[in-house]
C-alpha cells in the first residue's frame, strides 16, 4: 500500500545549547517510559523521535542541564 509521512508538532522541545548529549549524556532517552527520545547522530543532541507522549515529565525533571521542556500535546492543550 502507498504511504506518506504526516507532519505533526511534538510536545518535547530540547534546548540544543544546553543539551549535553554530545558529552555522552542519555538521561532523557533512558527515563522516557515510552522510549520516544533519541540522540541525533549528526547534531549529537537529544530530540523527540515519536509523537507518543504522556506528558509525564521524567525527561524534563531528570535532565541534568534543564534542557528539556514538555508542553501539553496540541490536541489536548
Amino acid at each position: 500500500m502507498p504511504m506518506i509521512m504526516n507532519r505533526v508538532s511534538v510536545p518535547v522541545t530540547v534546548n540544543e545549547e544546553a543539551c549535553i548529549a554530545d558529552k555522552g549524556c542519555t538521561v532523557c532517552v533512558e527515563s522516557c517510559p515510552l522510549d520516544l527520545l533519541a540522540i541525533d547522530l549528526v547534531k549529537k543532541k537529544a530530540f523527540m523521535q515519536y509523537d507518543e507522549c504522556w506528558y509525564c515529565l521524567p525527561c524534563e525533571k531528570d535532565c541534568p542541564t534543564q534542557a528539556i521542556r514538555v508542553d501539553i500535546p496540541y490536541l489536548l492543550r
Binding site: P33, E52, C53, L75
Partner: peptide
C-alpha cells in the same frame, strides 16, 4: 476523546 492515542488516564506503556 481528544483522539490522542497516548493521552490516556493510565501510563500508556
Amino acid at each position: 476523546s481528544s483522539g490522542y492515542l497516548f493521552g490516556t488516564y493510565e501510563n500508556p506503556t
